[in-house]
Design a protein around this nucleic acid. Sequence first.
DNA 1: GGATTATGTGCAGATTGTGGACTTAATCGT
DNA 2: ACGATTAAGTCCACAATCTGCACATAATCC
Lengths: 405, 405
Amino acid sequence: MASSRGVRHDSMRARNLAVVLGEIRAAGPLTRAALAELTGLTKTTVSKLVADLLDAGVVVENGAVRDGERGRPGVAVSVSGHRIATLGLEVNVDYLAACVVDLTRTVRVRRVRPADNRGSRPEAILADLRELAGQAVADAERAALRITGAGLAVPGPVQDGLLRNAPHLGWRDIGVAGQLGLHDLACEVDNEANLAALGELWFGSGETDFLYVSGEIGIGAGLVVDGSLFRGTYGLAGELGHVVVVPDGPACRCGGRGCLEVYAGQDALLGAVVPMRGRVAAMPGAAAALPAASASIDGLVSLLEAGDRAALTAAGQAGEALGLALTSAVHLLDPGTIVLGGVFARLFPWLERPVSDVLSARLRQMRRTPPRVAMSAIGADAAVLGAAGLAMQRVIADPAGVLAL
Amino acid sequence: MASSRGVRHDSMRARNLAVVLGEIRAAGPLTRAALAELTGLTKTTVSKLVADLLDAGVVVENGAVRDGERGRPGVAVSVSGHRIATLGLEVNVDYLAACVVDLTRTVRVRRVRPADNRGSRPEAILADLRELAGQAVADAERAALRITGAGLAVPGPVQDGLLRNAPHLGWRDIGVAGQLGLHDLACEVDNEANLAALGELWFGSGETDFLYVSGEIGIGAGLVVDGSLFRGTYGLAGELGHVVVVPDGPACRCGGRGCLEVYAGQDALLGAVVPMRGRVAAMPGAAAALPAASASIDGLVSLLEAGDRAALTAAGQAGEALGLALTSAVHLLDPGTIVLGGVFARLFPWLERPVSDVLSARLRQMRRTPPRVAMSAIGADAAVLGAAGLAMQRVIADPAGVLAL
DNA sequence: GGATTATGTGCAGATTGTGGACTTAATCGT
DNA sequence: ACGATTAAGTCCACAATCTGCACATAATCC
């Protein structure tokens, strides 16, 4: 219950600018009349606000709408991708990534650099990332884009801008944004799973209510309700990987026992089909250039496609464990649908059945229909895109403040 | 992402009235100058807004503050409990309840009627409740209170005002508010666990971030983050009772297996100490007038106090199961603290240890400190009070609209 | 008792949205 | 082809609300 501030004239206008811009962005090209209808403001006011947005170059008029109706046709306005953009960054265990996204949600620049970041010093990695970011920004500036903010996805929980604990990097309590040092560019840091969920929201299927399940080296999840992310009290919500699946199961690195990650984490998935390692290396299609973890997942997919028994049972068991954890998650979080992302998206064909079966068996009485289980619409880019989108959201939420309107 | 409406002059004023009233209510008696500081509005504006609130009788001046400082002392204003109040109602398995609460959060009327509502027809029960509500309203009107709204707690999930499924009442898809028929009094219906959480928020310890665990006949939970309730996509979040504790455990009435309710629900708690039934009835202290379920919990408490072996192991096992389910809940919901309410509040001395132990053992690596486990500060009234508070929240959030300012 | 400090209010002025009249640009009907 | 009709967008006087400053008020300090 943060002490709420009163509304003054300038904040009223700032809010109305945001409402109009948000509506234009959300509902596609709209005429001023339609905007007046949607926002409850008068045509006069909308005209003035749109004029300001046009001046700032964030929206453009794109010609009269010829809808065959009677009366004067309106002039549709839509967001312009020509001026404003934001930077998305990601540090992950086996790669660094950067992207630039414009106001229309078009990806303008995309740069990925494979790397083995396990146990590396934060300074070194972040210097590499700064360089990558610099290249992406330079690309964007060549396209005459103005970068107004940045977002950064990291593989671990973030609290007050501090990366608390990234077990696979070996980092603890790192002030990532500060060490990254993007001179005068504000950079918001968040968990990879949270940002991937937002990526799915803004760049994916268009759904506004879902639980994004992020299968990376660890397992995380981000819940989106009515288009906004649920973070919990300290920003640590969504740790699906450590939901208890079997109370006296094998020990997990988190100190618990029988966590989901023990059954469906990448180590479990790959460990269950150990002999494949040799086979994969010998297979002609195996991409030798890719880092080890990724290659192994590729190998697992190949084995699954080939109908390998051990691989199929491993996937089936992981799917069942995932279904059990998701049963608890559905009861507690009440998500709209469930979107499987990351590694789970690649394994979707073999996971969908066991997950859905467990969910429907266990939820049948409580809900008329259990949540649908879907595959992520965007691939491995989800988190970087979400990071860029997060920064863009600040522009949408307060165009006046960001653009000095 | 509901299409958001623009801000107009009247909504600006309405918002500022709400901000000022909210601040007065939240931060106790405040002078106009302090309000100006807190809200960011000017003293002039605050003066005008406060004048309107004084006219409406929702706040009162209570004399100059003599703080020993230099300068003219301010006049503190605080909310007035003399004019506005709301009605809270509850249908539960073994009682009906009504209460009237004023703007200062003082309970002005409280009426409880024991009843055995298992499998009863909604019409009959709701007619009884209407009568009880009428009596409470009459009491309030004798005290010159104006009832501006009502809230109703029911023992089951509510969606769009429809009570979906109350297994212990045997009700399904009942439009409770409509059938209750409180002529021109708006009545919002919600889950007992949700409203108990809000009751704890507004009438309890004053914490703003917690997971309220409601141990009634079933087990529910309500998550409060930063002073507001998390409801999930369809309003069904917080079903802690059906979190999976043992994947292949005994069947639960929900269709799943090994749900928390199987291990820590009231039936499990009482069933584990069956032989006591006879003993309880024979005990001199047993309140024979109370309904069966309640008497049994009284009996269990007596046995626990007497050190009965079977009772102690039953409580210990329930506590462990609760700890396991809460481990998953903490990972997914990230609550501030955990508040045990309802039956669990009465059993708190015997549950705290096992619950805390399981939580700290399993969460140690992921969080520096696992959430504190506390006992509900208010007793069995949590849900009715929350229902009244929910209605009161509408007054706070829009005094202009409700009071026709 | 005068200087100082802080509260609360009055009044002119600034900002922003409103409402209706007006202009513009299309379709429809004859 | 041309006027009637309809709807979009703009202009302008007006209204609602907040601001900023001046000023009266009421305490403490010395």
